[in-house]
Computed example of a mutant assay.
Amino acid sequence: MTERFDCHHCEESLFGKKYILREEDPYCVACFETLFASTCEECGKPIGCDCKDLSYKDRHWHDTCFHCSRCKNSLVDKPFAAKAEQLLCTDCYSHEYSSKCHQCRKTIMPGTRKMEYKGSSWHETCFICHHCQQPIGTKSFIPKDNENFCVPCYEKQYALQCVQCNKPITTGGVTYREQPWHKECFVCAACGKLLSGQRFTSRDDSAYCLNCFCDLHAKKCAGCTHPISGLGGTKYICFEDRQWHDDCFNCKKCSLSLVGRGFLTERDDILCPDCGKDI
């Protein structure tokens, strides 16, 4: 007795007929196409066993239906791009959607490397230093007057030189007495503290933080012996080579303020007229 060989679905004999195996089960062509064939995205018909099934992101096409949605040219074995569920050849895609190079104004083709900066795009080979004309690539660059410069060229052409270290200032400089400084080079001449953004003063062409200036150069108050900085509009009284803070210029005996008043002296002390009567 001959063993039967039937379609797994309709159970019709497959002897002498074309069949397709799926997961080790045989199917006649009609059953296989009904049960398993993909539907073509373009024409909506099943993709039969005698046709190539071209797929992209779970979508399927007959090879004769796999074409550009704009120009209708075949995309079989050709590069393509997808936009809004449509397949486009590279020419149509670049015409519709690709950015233009800021330098040469030509299309930057999909899949090619490009450089982007502040909303503009360049071919990698077009993104070059304005001075030396060498590609910048992933190296640091500095924009100036709508042009881009590699750091060495910018420093040679435009960067100011720090008066302290004589090296170029590319970012964050400080101007003091009309001369350029790096922030990290502009420091107190006594303690080395950074002065950028801090209150400071100078003496003999050197800059000092307030504490060092007061300790080194400020006159001492004859009343409290603390320095009189004279900064920020600080008022003080001078008399016979001595100085006082306004708040310290008081009668030695009764502590009455003598600012704007007459006063007497007894040795190193200052006295109001009333206390001076007892001298």
Rank of each mutant, 00 (worst) to 15 (best):
residue 107 T to C: 08
residue 96 E to I: 01
residue 45 K to T: 10
residue 79 P to W: 01
residue 100 K to M: 09
residue 90 T to V: 12
residue 72 K to Q: 14
residue 74 S to V: 05
residue 104 C to M: 05
residue 97 Y to C: 08
residue 67 H to N: 09
residue 78 K to C: 08
residue 83 K to A: 11
residue 105 R to L: 13
residue 81 A to K: 06
residue 78 K to L: 10
residue 98 S to D: 10
residue 101 C to N: 07
residue 72 K to D: 03
residue 56 Y to I: 12
residue 64 T to S: 15
residue 77 D to G: 07
residue 102 H to R: 09
residue 41 E to M: 08
residue 46 P to S: 03
residue 94 S to M: 03
residue 74 S to F: 10
residue 69 S to W: 09
residue 100 K to T: 15
residue 93 Y to A: 06
residue 92 C to S: 07
residue 79 P to A: 04
residue 42 E to K: 09
residue 41 E to R: 13
residue 43 C to L: 04
residue 67 H to A: 15
residue 60 H to I: 10
residue 92 C to E: 03
residue 79 P to S: 12
residue 91 D to S: 04
residue 70 R to I: 09
residue 41 E to A: 07
residue 58 D to G: 09
residue 99 S to A: 12
residue 64 T to L: 06
residue 94 S to A: 15
residue 60 H to C: 12
residue 84 A to T: 07
residue 38 S to F: 05
residue 93 Y to G: 08
residue 100 K to G: 11
residue 91 D to T: 09
residue 50 D to P: 01
residue 85 E to C: 01
residue 40 C to S: 07
residue 56 Y to S: 14
residue 38 S to K: 10
residue 107 T to A: 14
residue 80 F to H: 10
residue 46 P to Q: 00
residue 104 C to D: 11
residue 38 S to P: 06
residue 92 C to I: 02
residue 76 V to I: 09
residue 84 A to V: 05
residue 85 E to W: 02
residue 74 S to G: 14
residue 61 W to E: 12
residue 98 S to W: 09
residue 39 T to M: 07
residue 70 R to H: 11
residue 99 S to R: 15
residue 65 C to H: 08
residue 70 R to F: 06
residue 45 K to W: 02
residue 54 L to W: 03
residue 44 G to S: 00
residue 101 C to M: 06
residue 72 K to L: 11
residue 58 D to L: 10
residue 89 C to G: 04
residue 68 C to G: 03
residue 53 D to M: 04
residue 46 P to C: 00
residue 44 G to P: 04
residue 76 V to G: 03
residue 106 K to D: 13
residue 56 Y to D: 15
residue 58 D to Q: 14
residue 97 Y to T: 08
residue 81 A to I: 04
residue 103 Q to F: 14
residue 85 E to Q: 13
residue 58 D to T: 10
residue 44 G to E: 04
residue 86 Q to V: 03
residue 90 T to P: 00
residue 82 A to T: 12
residue 39 T to E: 13
residue 43 C to I: 02
residue 85 E to K: 13
residue 44 G to Y: 02
residue 96 E to R: 06
residue 95 H to M: 08
residue 49 C to S: 01
residue 48 G to V: 11
residue 51 C to W: 03
residue 43 C to G: 04
residue 47 I to M: 02
residue 39 T to R: 13
residue 69 S to D: 15
residue 39 T to G: 06
residue 85 E to Y: 02
residue 95 H to E: 15
residue 104 C to T: 06
residue 67 H to M: 07
residue 62 H to G: 12
residue 90 T to G: 00
residue 105 R to T: 12
residue 49 C to H: 06
residue 63 D to F: 13
residue 57 K to P: 02
